[in-house]
Design a protein around this nucleic acid. Structure first.
Lengths: 211, 211
DNA sequence: AATCCTTTGTAACATTTGTTACATTATGTG
DNA sequence: CACATAATGTAACAAATGTTACAAAGGATT
C-alpha cells in the first residue's frame, strides 16, 4: 500500500480532496515500535506528526531527567504544539515516545502555515491546539487537585483509552517513572485500588475494571 | 484618545498597516479594575482579549471552587486559547481576573480565522498559542518537580514581572488560594524564604529581593 | 535443580504538606 | 479610646507521600 492510499484511507474524513492530494505528495510514512523515541530531548522538531494507528505519549522532562507524562496523541490526532517548545532552548524540554507500535505520517512544519487557506486544515490545526490545551489542563488538575489514588487511577484509565485495552502490560516501576513518584508508593496505591475493586493486579499486568 | 489612536500607539510594532485599520474598525476598548472578573466560570468566550497595559491572571478551577493559577497575560499579549475551553461544558473551567488595573481591546473570535491571511496576525496567533503552551509547561514543572519553597518563590517572581514591581501588595491568604494550599503553609514557607534572604515580609506586602 | 534477575509486597521510618488552635499585631471604625 | 476585624506568627499534631531495607515470588538461563 503506497502513501497516497494510506492517506486517502485514513484522512479523507478530515481533509478536503485537494489537500489530500498535497498531503500525498509531501507526507512521509513512518512506523515506530513501542518504546521507540519519536523525539528526544532538545531535538529540533522539523515535522508535524499525524497518527494513523497506535499512540504516542508526551512527557515533560526536568533538568535531572525526571519525567512527567502529559498526554497521548492517538489515531487521527496530531500535536502541532510539540514543534515550538523544542526550538526555544529552554532548560527543560518535552519528549515523545511510542506507547504502542504506531504508524504515522510526517509533514514538514512549514506546511502548517502554507495550508491555512484550507478550511479543513485550519479546523484541524486549531482543533489540535485546543485538544492539547484541554489535556494540559487535565494534567494540571491531576497535580493540583488530586491525591495519588485518584491520579494513578486516572493515569490507568487514560492508558486504557490509548491502548484500546483494559488489560495493561505495565510494571509498577514504569508507572512510578511516568508519574514522577516512587515504585513503593505506586505499589501501595495499586494495592489499595485493588482492594476497592477498581483494578486487578497481575504480574506485569493491570486490568482496569469499572471502565 | 479614540480607539484608533490607542491601537496605532500600541500595536503598530506588531501588525501591518491594513490590519491596524481593520482592528480600529472592530476592536472595542475596555478597562477593568484590579480583581475584576474578565471572564467567569462557564461563561462563553465571544472575544479575544488583547492587553494594552496591566495584566490578567488565568486560573484553573475545580468542582469545589478551588483555584490554581496558570499564568499571566501581559501588555502586547493575548490568549487565543481561553476561547475554547469555556465552550466545552467540561466539569471544570478556567477563570480570568485582573491582576492590576488593566486596559485591553476586545476582538470578536470569528476574526481569529478571518485574519489569518495577514502574516503578522498568523505570527501573533501562533506565537500566543506557543507562549501559553510554554507557560502551561512551567505550571506543570512547578507542580510535578518542585517543592513548596520553590513553587512559592517562582510564584512571587512571576508576580513581580506581571506587576513590574518588586514590592507586591498581597496577603498570605491570597497566595494560599492562588496556589491551592493553606495559609499556614504559606506563612511557614515565606518565613523560611525571608530567613534565606530571598524576600522581605511586611504587612500586606512582600518585597522580592535577588531579582 | 541451582542460579540470576526482575517484579512485587511490605514494614519501618523520614519528610513534606496540611490542619487545628490560639496568640499577637496592625489597622480601621464607632 | 474601646472594639472589631484582618493579617500574621507559631506550636502541636495529622495525613500524605517519599525512602530505605529486605523478603518473597515468578521467569529465564544454565
Amino acid at each position: 500500500m503506497d502513501t497516497k492510499e494510506i492517506i486517502t484511507d485514513n484522512f479523507s474524513f478530515l481533509f478536503e480532496k485537494s489537500l489530500l492530494d498535497e498531503l500525498s505528495e509531501i507526507a512521509k510514512f513512518k512506523k515506530v515500535e513501542k518504546d521507540e523515541y519519536l523525539m528526544d530531548i532538545g531535538q529540533e522538531m522539523v515535522f508535524i506528526p499525524l497518527i494513523i494507528s497506535g499512540s504516542i505519549k508526551i512527557f515533560r522532562t526536568d533538568d535531572d531527567g525526571d519525567d512527567y507524562i502529559l498526554y497521548f496523541i492517538e489515531g487521527g490526532d496530531t500535536c502541532a504544539m510539540t514543534l515550538n517548545c523544542c526550538m526555544k532552548g529552554a532548560k527543560s524540554e518535552i519528549k515523545a515516545v511510542a506507547e504502542s507500535d504506531t504508524e504515522l505520517i510526517l509533514i514538514p512544519i512549514n506546511k502548517l502555515e502554507d495550508w491555512l487557506h484550507y478550511k479543513s486544515w485550519r479546523a484541524f490545526v486549531f482543533g489540535s491546539y485546543n485538544n492539547k490545551f484541554t489535556e494540559m489542563l487535565e494534567a494540571i488538575d491531576s497535580l493540583a487537585f488530586m491525591n495519588m489514588n485518584e491520579r494513578i487511577l486516572k493515569y490507568l484509565k487514560d492508558k486504557v483509552v490509548a491502548n484500546k485495552d483494559i488489560a495493561l502490560s505495565i510494571t509498577h516501576n514504569i508507572i512510578s517513572m511516568e508519574l514522577n513518584t516512587s515504585r513503593v508508593v505506586v505499589s501501595r496505591v495499586l494495592k489499595k485500588l485493588e482492594m476497592d475493586g477498581d483494578i486487578k493486579l497481575l504480574r506485569k499486568q493491570i486490568i482496569v475494571l469499572n471502565f
